[in-house]
Amino acid sequence: MSSVPKNKDELELAISSIILKLMADYRSIPESYTREKGVEGNIKGTTISVSDTVAYLIGWGKLVLKWHHLKSQNQHVDFPETGYKWNQLGLLADCFHKEYRDWKYDDLLVELESTVSDILLLISNLSNHELYGVAWYEQWTLGRMIQFNTSSPMKNMRTKVRRFNREFT
């Protein structure tokens, strides 16, 4: 499989395969380390916790679902999110970290799995043409927008989380 999914089946496989590996990595980290700052953050020179990485992935997953819901109702979508521009993604990441700061680690993992299940269900209910046959946001197809905000950051976070796990636990 190429690194960039080009159709519905490849997108489903990309997401379902990385989430299994990522969840295994998340579950291998002792709970006592999940709030330690030590993971490379999304803003250059910052560090975040493992819990923050989960919050980040939940936040983006929920945005994907929100975008699709609004667009499917012919409602306006503020991309990437109301109050944020594409050049403010570090601030948006901080917003996700704050939103889930008080959640228990196990609850974060359940929420991530639930969000990913919702995304996989969405994909399964769409045709390959709906996902990859038409521009959905500017020049990007819906499939690419989903991939940009699910499997790609999951792979990125997995690398960072594995590095943290080797160095700190």
Score class of each variant (00 low, 15 high):
His76Gly: 00
Leu142Phe: 03
Thr34Ala: 14
Ala55Tyr: 00
Gly143Leu: 10
Lys104Phe: 05
Ser127Glu: 07
Asn149Lys: 00
Gly41Ala: 09
Ile58Asn: 00
Tyr84Arg: 07
Lys71Pro: 04
Met154His: 03
Asp106Cys: 05
Trp60Asp: 05
Leu142Thr: 02
Tyr56Cys: 02
Thr150His: 08
Asn149Gly: 07
Lys37Asp: 10
Asn125Trp: 03
Leu63Glu: 15
Trp103Gln: 11
His129Lys: 14
Asn149Tyr: 05
Gly143Trp: 01
Tyr132Asp: 09
Phe148Thr: 03
Lys66Asp: 15
Tyr105Asn: 10
Ile119Trp: 05
Thr34Tyr: 06
Val110Ile: 15
Thr115His: 11
Glu113Ser: 10
Asp118Trp: 04
Ile123Tyr: 01
Ser152Trp: 09
Leu91Tyr: 11
Leu109Lys: 13
Ala93Arg: 05
Met154Gly: 01
His69Cys: 03
Trp60Pro: 08
Asn74Tyr: 01
Gln75Pro: 01
Trp136Tyr: 15
Trp60Phe: 14
Asp94Val: 02
Val50Ala: 02
Gln147Gly: 09
Leu70Val: 02
Thr141Val: 04
Thr47Val: 15
Ile48Asp: 03
Ser117Ile: 08
Asn87Leu: 01
Lys66Ala: 09
Gly38Phe: 12
Gly133Met: 11
Gln147Ser: 14
Lys62Ala: 10
Thr46Lys: 12
His97Phe: 15
Leu121Met: 04
Asn87Asp: 15
Trp140Asn: 13
Gln88His: 03
Lys71His: 04
Pro153Val: 04
Tyr132Gly: 03
His129Gly: 07
Phe148Ala: 03
Val161Gln: 08
Ser152Val: 13
Arg101Pro: 00
Asn87Gly: 07
Lys160Ser: 13
Lys160Ala: 11
Thr115Lys: 09
Asn125Tyr: 05
Val77Gly: 00
Trp86Gly: 06
Trp67Met: 08
Ile119Leu: 10
Lys37Ser: 13
Asn87Val: 06
